[in-house]
Amino acid sequence: MINDEWIWSLNRLIPNDPVVARQVLEQIREQLEAQQWDERDIFGVRLAVDEALVNAMKHGNRQDAGKQVGVACKLSEKRLWIRIADEGPGFCPESVPDCTEPENLERPCGRGIMLMRNFMSRVEYNTRGNAVEMEKQR
């Protein structure tokens, strides 16, 4: 990781609750707006972080209210770094079918991950597949 001067950071274990996820998203949006990131980048980061949080709560933690999601986020002048981890068994991102193939176009699969990869500069999963690390270069 490049050593930036971080101007804001967040490190929280949040309950498996979409309302709290929404609060985290809002916090990140406010920070990006305060740093005058452009609208398209803010839109992309929000979309990617929302998709990652939904995946963690719904698919990772299987909507279990007793489980938590770890959110670590840092912001420098040039980039945003975020790591989202759930308590689930993990998954293999390569095994998710390509949602843009004609036969999969109408299936509800992999669209969130595809959007994350397109809107962020880097998206990587850990070996177990229960944590995603993403970066957005301004």
């Binding site: 929000r46 979309l47 929302d50 998709e51 939904v54 109408e106 509800p108 669209r111 969130g112 959007l115």
Partner: peptide, 16 residues
Amino acid sequence: EFLSSHALGKLITLEK
């Protein structure tokens, strides 16, 4: 102003 992949899923079902 904003929609997620889950919303896209609903639109796909609607289209069907």
